[in-house]
Every structure is written in C-alpha cells, then in structure tokens.
Amino acid sequence: MDDEVFTLLGWAWDVALASRLARRHPIRPAAIRTLTGIMGLIRIDPDHAATVDLTKPLLIVPLPYAPPPGNRLVIDGWHRIHRALDLGLEELPAFFLDLTDERACRLRGGDV
C-alpha cells in the first residue's frame, strides 16, 4: 500500500518510504516481547492478524530522544506481533532502520 502511514499520538511515519529504506539493512531477528510496551495503544483486528505472513519483516525505527530499552518503535507489523504472541513465538524477522532513515520517513512529530 503506497500511502500507508503509521500514526502514534502526534507522530507519523511513511511506511512505504520506510520499506524502501529498509532494503539497505539486513533482516535480523527481533525479540517481540521487548517491542510490545505500547501495544495497548494499537488497534488490532484479530481476524486480519490470523491471516498475516509471519515471514514478512517488521519495520522498526529508533525513537529520537528516548533512552534504551524503550527506544525502538514498530511502524509496520503489529498484526504480525499479535499473531506471533498468540502462537507463543519469541522472535520475528525485522528491519531495524537507523536514525537517518527514521528522520527521512517521519512525516510529523518531534522537531519536524
């Protein structure tokens, strides 16, 4: 979907651009439980989650100004995380974008 945007509170990221930028990075395993701190804020459709492809990598950006360990945000893949948790999985494949990529795909929020 070319116009997909992930929005959280006053922040937003262009997911299509993040997907293109992600191709420069290796796919690495992500420990999904460490990424679920904001899951209560994410709207999940359980029917859709049951059909997602768990081999498609998550898109994860670093959050500027946030200290570790909570400085990583999933901008694409919440339904995959939901399904993986239901199945008892601990990891999913992921692209970890860097700060330059995060800033390039951020549409609003922070000091934009």
Score class of each variant (00 low, 15 high):
G109A: 08
T34G: 08
P26E: 13
M1R: 07
T7P: 01
D14M: 00
I81Y: 12
D3T: 14
I27A: 11
R103S: 09
L89D: 13
M1V: 12
R24Y: 15
I60K: 07
R80C: 11
D47W: 13
L58V: 15
E90R: 09
L41H: 09
H79I: 13
D14L: 01
H25C: 10
T51D: 07
D111Q: 01
P46N: 05
I27W: 07
G110S: 11
G110F: 04
E91G: 03
D2T: 15
Y65E: 15
W11S: 03
L21Q: 10
G37N: 09
L41K: 11
F6P: 00
Y65L: 12
D14Q: 02
E91T: 15
G37C: 04
D14N: 07
L85P: 01
L63M: 10
P26L: 06
G77C: 04
D47E: 15
F96R: 01
A94F: 06
L21P: 04
G40R: 06
R20L: 14
A18G: 10
L63E: 06
P62K: 09
R106V: 00
G88N: 07
P68L: 02
L54I: 12
L92F: 07
L8Y: 12
R24S: 15
R33I: 09
S19T: 04
L58I: 11
R106Y: 06
T51L: 08
H25D: 05
A18K: 03
H79W: 10
E4M: 10
V112H: 03
A50H: 11
L63K: 11
G77F: 05
F6V: 01
P29K: 12
R33H: 13
W78E: 00
